[in-house]
Design a protein around this nucleic acid. Structure first.
Ligand SMILES: [Mn+2]
Ligand SMILES: [Mn+2]
Ligand SMILES: [Mn+2]
Ligand SMILES: [Mn+2]
Lengths: 219, 219
DNA sequence: AATCATTTTTAGATTTGCCTAAAATTTTTC
DNA sequence: GAAAAATTTTAGGCAAATCTAAAAATGATT
């Protein structure tokens, strides 16, 4: 089934709000996420229900059908592959790629998607550390820790971020931290859980909140 | 100015029909190229005229304004860069890439375009041998010959095709000729101008018409 | 359980891109 | 140069995606 760009974005929005458990999603929540009006969402829900991509009962909320879920995951796969391409191959910063990937994710060509994935070495995580589902829609399991769980003295590699909001990405970029960078955990303050980091020449302190949003692996 | 995908395709269509000289373009010609109806074209022409992207007088025909021409060339630049990417980096055949590039050409991000160009080594010609305009809209000048102008005994490299219709690309692909391949001109038949080619182990004869549509350079 | 507040849907419009059929204009032919 | 043919525009409509305003349903509060 071939959907319009708009329909694709609705599926993706429902997927995100719904979470892995496939919770019921409110009309208002979708409207807010897509920056549109509830009345517009209702129209689209009726349409997506007719196409059997969602399960929807008026006034009761909606969730993705199995078909809808698979479709949404394919868009997500493309989004994250393109983000990886932009960072790894074209040298973009991880805070710059989301908007462009919003466009690229709608390009329709299964062959392109698979070739792109191969070209990138079939990555399992995108530049923000988010998992990239495979062709059949299966998500890889993350093994990485977050920085707040590291131990003093450890040297670690930056694998991604949990929170990929523009605000957080900009903060991290301002600190000079990039994907793959090596960090040394100097110490962890017992009082507030903040972490003193050595990064090349620089040394700085990250709050527990910030460090709990950075994925790392042991070096 | 940000145009819709449809508007962009109209500009590109007018650019192609109009040619380098900026000839007047008929409503019917645009309709045929875009596989739509003349009445629909008239609607769009009025709209593009209001945006000052074309010069248009009812019943008299239309051509691109300077702004419109620059816009069309930017789309063309993106189209040909993406085709180059698909062939060079993802290993697509040159007969497969046009459709995908029709989608990718509409992705809006000047930075992406320039990064992509750099990543590809700022190519001057796409996989079909068509010139890729630079950032400012200037087309490179082609120095290559066509195969019908080669001399017997010469060894040449395939640089592109003049005619990039699906039919011709398929024919060339069927012969096993790919971009960058080396061909040896065994002889040229004086009677009809057909060319006997040696390509690796294979030997075959190309009509004058076919060979006049293949760009080559001396080895 | 009746009222009030919130959420959601319905009704009615608008814009964009497209269509068919009819009218107008231009071009070609005799 | 008038008639016929071709081209192009206008008129009127339709589907998709959006909006605002009003109505309906649900949920929360006394
Ligand atoms: Mn993203
Ligand atoms: Mn999107
Ligand atoms: Mn092409
Ligand atoms: Mn296009």
């Amino acid at each position: 089934m071939n959907l319009s760009l708009t329909e694709e974005n609705y599926l993706k929005a429902i997927f995100f709000i719904s979470g892995n458990e496939g919770n019921l999603v409110n009309t208002n929540a979708v409207a807010e996420r897509l920056d549109t009006k509830p009345a517009t969402v209702t129209d689209m829900l009726r349409k997506l229900k007719n196409k059997e991509l969602i399960i929807y009962q008026p006034y009761k909320g909606t969730r993705l059908s199995e078909d809808g879920r698979l479709y949404a995951i394919q868009i997500l796969r493309k989004h994250r592959l393109w983000e990886t391409f932009l960072v790894e191959k074209l040298g973009f910063g991880w805070e710059e790629v989301h908007e462009i990937a919003e466009q690229l994710e709608h390009v329709r060509s299964p062959k392109l998607t698979e070739r792109l994935s191969g070209f990138l070495g079939n990555p399992q995580f995108d530049p923000h550390g988010d998992p990239i589902p495979d062709e059949r829609g299966v998500f890889p399991v993350r093994e990485d820790l977050t920085l707040d769980r590291a131990e003093a003295g450890q040297e670690v590699l930056v694998k991604g971020v949990k929170d990929s909001s523009t605000e957080f990405l900009n903060y991290v970029a301002k600190l000079g931290i990039r994907l793959g960078d090596e960090l040394k955990v100097v110490n962890i303050e017992p009082f507030d859980g903040s972490v003193l980091i050595q990064h090349g020449e620089a040394e700085f302190r990250l709050s527990a909140q910030a460090s709990s949003n950075i994925y790392i692996s042991k070096k």
